[in-house]
Computed example of a mutant assay.
Amino acid sequence: MGATGTGKSRLSIDLATRFPSEIINSDKIQVYKGLDIVTNKVTEEECRGIPHHLLGVIDPDVDYNAAKFRQDTLLAIESIIEQDKLPIIAGGSNSFIESLVNDDPYFASKYDCCFLWVDVSLPILRHFVSERVDQMVKAGLVDEVRGIFDPKANYTQGIRRAIGVPEMDQFLRAEGNADAETLDTLLQVAIDEVKENTCKLASRQLQKIHRLRDFWGWNLHHIDATEVFRKGGEDARKTWEKLVVGPSAMTVTQFLYRTPTVPSFPKSPGTAVIERTVQPMAAMATATH
């Protein structure tokens, strides 16, 4: 689990290379087909051969909700466990994970969870988010949104809810009618709004995680990745391995083998490892890329 941009997807893949696993996406926007840049989906290269479920598979115009996510996730978990692999649930939509863990009696009766919370100091994360949006624009974000632009579209449904789509509306409406200077201004305003709305999303996600911990009593294993984001290049990679992957892998190992240092997990709500109570197998969820 964690706010957008903290490295949840990266960690889930790193863990899946250490434990025989498959990953279930729990990001409510990344489930949709298309807009791979806008939604910041992991690339095939970044997946490193690890199978991903519920990633880019839903029709863009369908409203995908928590109930449907619970149903699809349970099917994926059973399929993964039948292969003697560990299910890892990873994504930024904490409401989906909360619904799965708190509201599904079948899930609660069959599985235990290990929640990994990847955290980054908000001021540091805001700077990273701003740079990431600039990189997404360079990678083709505007063209991607232009490809699905519809002046009559409803921005409250399907993939058009994604941050990066509604913000481009005024700019795309002005194309063909406004002069170059006006278009440049509108585009910059749109990009700034994408950055601001992404930062607001990160704050909301963090507040929700605190609520899951403080109100619902979820036992979240806090992984502080702030130092990684302060560094660059090889230093950042080494720090990620030392401060994020290493401690996370140790926590998962302790969970799977039930060593005395790991307390029991409540049968309620996070990224989570889920163990089937009838056999020594687990599902792990690392809740936005």
Score class of each variant (00 low, 15 high):
P263C: 00
R132L: 10
E144K: 06
P266E: 02
S79N: 14
T185F: 13
R126M: 01
Q135S: 09
T251I: 15
V189R: 11
Y64M: 08
D143G: 13
G5P: 00
R126D: 10
D61G: 06
A108H: 02
L75D: 13
A249N: 04
V57I: 15
Q83C: 11
Y106H: 15
K8Q: 08
L243W: 11
G217H: 05
E45W: 07
A174R: 06
G233W: 11
K238T: 14
T226H: 02
D112C: 06
G5Y: 01
D112V: 03
I124N: 00
G34F: 07
L187S: 04
C199L: 09
A225V: 08
I274R: 05
V42W: 03
G246T: 07
T288F: 00
T253G: 00
T182D: 11
G147Y: 00
G56C: 15
A90K: 05
G7I: 06
L183W: 04
I37T: 11
K208M: 11
S79I: 07
V228N: 02
P263F: 06
K238E: 15
Y257Q: 11
S264T: 13
E175N: 08
R213Y: 08
F128R: 11
D169S: 12
A272G: 09
V244Q: 06
T239M: 14
R10A: 12
T43V: 08
V273Q: 09
V38E: 02
H222P: 03
P60V: 08
G246E: 10
S264F: 08
A66G: 00
E82W: 08
Q188A: 07
F255S: 01
K267E: 12
D224M: 06
K208H: 14
N94V: 03
K195I: 08
R132E: 12
L141F: 02
A174L: 10
S121T: 02
M284T: 10
L15M: 05
L125Q: 11
V42I: 14
E131L: 04
R126N: 07
K200V: 12
T251C: 10
K8D: 07
M168G: 02
A16I: 03
F19G: 09
P105S: 11
T39L: 02
S12P: 00
D59L: 08
I159M: 00
A225Q: 05
P280K: 03
S130C: 12
I191V: 14
W216H: 14
T182I: 13
L125H: 09
R204K: 15
D63A: 14
E144T: 05
Q71P: 01
A3Y: 05
T39I: 00
L74Q: 01
D235P: 04
K68W: 13
A90V: 07
G2A: 10
A285S: 09
